[in-house]
Amino acid sequence: MRRRNLLTGAMALGATAALGTSSAEAAEGTVEDTLFRLPSAPPVPLARLTQEIMKARADFRAAHYTVLGQSLARLLAAATATRDAATGHERERANIALARGYVLAAELALKQHDDSAWVAADRALTAARASGHPVPIGESSRVLAITMRRPGRIPAAVQFLGHEAKNLDTLRPQTGAVRTTLMLTAAYTAANGGDRTTALDLLNAAEEETDRWAAQPNPELFTVDANKAQVDVYRIGAHTALGTPDEAVEVAARLDIDRMPTAERRARAWTDTARMWHALGDDRQTFAALRHVEQEAPQEVRRPAVRALTSDLLYGPTRVPGIREFAGRTGASFA
Rank of each mutant, 00 (worst) to 15 (best):
283 D>I: 00
161 L>V: 04
286 T>S: 11
244 T>H: 14
181 T>L: 05
56 A>E: 11
261 P>I: 04
35 L>W: 04
51 Q>T: 11
270 W>T: 01
197 T>A: 15
302 R>A: 06
308 A>P: 00
322 G>F: 01
130 A>V: 01
102 Y>Q: 07
99 A>F: 06
224 V>K: 08
10 A>M: 12
221 L>N: 10
246 D>G: 12
220 E>G: 05
216 Q>W: 06
209 E>K: 02
2 R>T: 14
25 E>C: 07
257 I>F: 01
85 A>D: 09
123 R>Y: 05
212 R>P: 01
83 R>K: 10
166 K>E: 15
18 A>T: 14
155 P>H: 06
239 H>R: 08
257 I>M: 04
48 R>D: 14
46 L>V: 09
334 F>Q: 12
129 R>V: 11
108 L>D: 05
128 A>Y: 04
314 L>P: 07
196 R>K: 13
203 L>S: 08
43 P>D: 13
8 T>W: 12
35 L>M: 12
247 E>M: 09
155 P>M: 15
319 R>K: 09
279 A>C: 08
200 L>S: 01
301 V>Y: 00
48 R>E: 14
176 G>Y: 00
178 V>T: 13
291 R>P: 00
284 R>L: 09
58 A>L: 11
266 R>A: 09
270 W>K: 02
258 D>H: 12
280 L>T: 02
52 E>V: 09
160 F>W: 13
319 R>P: 00
164 E>T: 12
107 E>T: 02
49 L>E: 08
117 A>S: 14
257 I>S: 03
71 S>H: 14
279 A>T: 03
231 V>Y: 00
34 T>I: 14
1 M>I: 07
14 G>I: 02
192 N>P: 00
213 W>T: 15
124 A>Y: 03
225 D>A: 12
159 Q>H: 14
270 W>L: 06
174 Q>T: 15
290 L>R: 04
154 I>F: 08
207 E>N: 15
310 T>N: 07
71 S>W: 00
193 G>N: 10
2 R>F: 12
118 W>C: 01
92 E>P: 00
70 Q>P: 01
141 S>I: 01
292 H>Q: 13
24 A>L: 14
331 G>A: 12
319 R>N: 08
127 A>F: 05
53 I>K: 02
268 R>D: 15
51 Q>D: 11
194 G>E: 10
199 A>E: 05
142 R>L: 15
34 T>G: 09
327 A>K: 01
229 A>E: 15
129 R>N: 10
8 T>V: 11
37 R>S: 13
219 P>N: 12
333 S>G: 15
179 R>T: 04
96 I>V: 15
166 K>H: 14
169 D>S: 08
290 L>H: 07
141 S>H: 03
108 L>P: 01
3 R>L: 10
238 A>G: 03
233 V>M: 15
